[in-house]
Simulated scan of single mutants.
Amino acid sequence: MRATFGDDFYICRFQEIGWEEEFAKVDTKKLLASIYFRRDPSPPKPPKDYAKSFNPTPYTLPSWFTEQDLDYFASKYQATGFTGGFNYYRCFDLNWELCAAWTGSKIMVPVKFIVGDLDLTYSFPATKEYISGGGFKKTVTGPEEVVVMEGVGHFINQERPQEINKHIYDFIVKF
């Protein structure tokens, strides 16, 4: 990842120790709002002195999220911190190592893949091309359908619950 995206890429940055302390210095609710309601699919590049530069714009709650939701999530992170989330990024190399035996394996069961076009994971370099250009269908041999939802970010199940439920239902009833 570092070779492709550089040291400032958020995945590389969050592998470093000390981010828990940086996040603990800022308002948890505003921090979560800046993450959850982000509509920019380009990968974030947080500076090393994140707390000093944290200057969130006032947020507007989207229709799919309430102030009570934000209060709830903020209270959980205030109680436990962000170590669990950061450990996900710190474990990337180990995950690759543990999954090495399946390198080149194909997914051969029916699949319906749904992603939002504003999800930053969909906007990683080469990901869109992989999904729409045939690479995905070589790895996932039985995709029923690939759905790219316009105007939807990472939290597709919250942003468009009825549409997601319909996609899931329509997929399941085929069996």
Rank of each mutant, 00 (worst) to 15 (best):
N165P: 10
E145Y: 14
F124Y: 11
P143H: 13
R90C: 11
D69V: 01
W64I: 07
P46Y: 01
Y59V: 01
P143V: 13
A101M: 03
E16V: 05
L120F: 07
G18W: 01
I172R: 02
A79W: 03
G81W: 10
S123D: 14
T83D: 08
G142R: 12
L94N: 14
I131Y: 00
Y10S: 02
A51M: 13
Y122S: 01
S132Q: 06
C99M: 13
Q78H: 08
I114D: 05
Y122F: 06
E16I: 07
Y88K: 09
G81E: 14
K166F: 00
V111P: 03
G133V: 05
F175T: 07
T4F: 09
Q162V: 10
N87L: 14
F124N: 04
T141R: 02
Y122K: 05
I131E: 08
I168D: 00
I156E: 00
P43L: 09
S42I: 15
F14M: 12
F54S: 04
T103S: 00
A74F: 00
P43Q: 03
I131A: 10
D119T: 07
K29S: 00
F155D: 01
K112E: 13
A79E: 13
P46I: 02
A24L: 02
H154R: 10
R38I: 08
H167S: 12
F113Y: 09
A24Q: 12
G153D: 08
F23D: 07
Q78Y: 00
I131C: 03
P46S: 01
P56K: 06
T57F: 09
N157P: 00
F155Q: 02
W19I: 01
H154T: 14
S105A: 01
K25W: 04
N165F: 05
P58C: 08
V146S: 04
S63F: 11
V26E: 05
D117N: 12
K166C: 03
P125H: 05
D7F: 04
V147H: 10
E97Y: 15
D7Q: 09
F54W: 09
N95L: 15
C99K: 13
D71R: 13
N165T: 14
N55I: 01
S105G: 14
G104S: 08
